[in-house]
Design a protein around this nucleic acid. Structure first.
Length: 290
DNA sequence: TTCCAGGACCGGG
DNA sequence: CCCGGTCATGGA
């Protein structure tokens, strides 16, 4: 088990050790979050900056392996960024598990994907932000998803130091469907509005969804929202609700399954880590290929 | 210009 | 249950 610890604090940056093979670049470039970008004038290697949980933050690779840099207070690191980055989770054993779940060429492909995506961590994002973001994601591409979300934050998020927080469900409900459509969300406007309405009014409780016994029960709770189907529910549960058994299937996953797993890809073999396996395969097919 | 993107909904068979 | 058309938008 990883035991992250703060090595030192200098110029607003924490050096954190004990993070295993964490890759800042891959974790924030693998399509799971939409509010982080490479730092325009970064001082450090693979520095990214963005906003989560209403706070501006930057991350970067450390000078030595097993270390990362976090621009935050020690208090925020312990209470927010450590869980956000899943630094308490042992990915070495997860990687071993999902590879050993397969045999033959299937295992070889999985091992290659793990190697290509080594250091990816499944972030523990805010529940509402994950839900809203992946509604925006449907039949959309990542650069445009990021653009739309950025605009949503600028217009309806609370102003904070360094940018805007993600807008609350109440703020988007108050904004109304027409204003949401005005942010170039297209046919998704009515979906985003329905989600904002149901969450803001309490018709759907994300805490109740989170407390659901089974994955199916949690997914069914989210799918009561118009525009939330199996894929959006799976992404939301994987990236916002710590349901690492979620296995979102999009065009990239269909593609990698068809190309490299001729006998089919039974994600139940990956058990409670299916979502991690999925993210390696997604990253491999989407960004690496061949 | 046409195709495609971390899909879901709807109608018809 | 399953299939194809449809939905907005803009980058490639």
């Amino acid at each position: 088990m990883n035991k992250p610890y703060i090595i030192n604090e200098y110029d607003g940056w924490l050096t954190v050790g004990g993070v295993g093979d964490f890759s800042v670049f891959r974790t924030f470039d693998c399509g799971q979050c939409f509010r982080f970008d490479p730092a325009a004038e970064g001082e450090y290697k693979n520095q990214v900056e963005g906003i989560a949980f209403g706070r501006s933050v930057s991350f970067a690779d450390g000078e030595r392996s097993g270390e990362i840099l976090v621009r935050s207070s020690a208090e925020d690191f312990e209470s927010i960024w450590l869980p956000y980055l899943s630094l308490d989770t042992d990915y070495d054993s997860i990687n071993r598990y999902i590879c050993e779940a397969l045999t033959g060429s299937d295992r070889a492909h999985m091992e290659r994907a793990v190697e290509a995506g080594r250091g990816i961590r499944i972030l523990r994002q805010d529940k509402w932000e994950a839900l809203c973001s992946f509604i925006v994601s449907q039949n959309n591409n990542i650069p445009r998803i990021k653009k739309i979300i950025s605009e949503m934050c600028r217009r309806y998020g609370e102003k904070i130091d360094g940018g805007w927080a993600f807008p609350t469900a109440q703020a988007l409900y108050d904004a109304g469907e027409a204003s949401i459509f005005d942010m170039r969300t297209g046919f998704r406007a009515k979906y985003i509005y329905d989600a904002a309405k149901k969450v803001a009014t309490g018709e759907i409780s994300l805490d109740d969804v989170s407390a659901a016994e089974t994955y199916e029960e949690a997914a069914a709770g989210l799918e009561k929202i118009s525009g939330v189907g199996p894929k959006v529910a799976a992404c939301t549960l994987l990236f916002g609700f710590e349901r690492l058994e979620a296995f979102p299937i999009d065009v990239w996953m269909r593609r990698v399954a068809e190309k490299r797993f001729p006998d089919g890809l039974d994600h139940t073999l990956f058990g409670k880590w299916a979502g991690v396996a999925q993210q390696y395969l997604f990253y491999f097919e989407r960004y690496i290929g061949d």
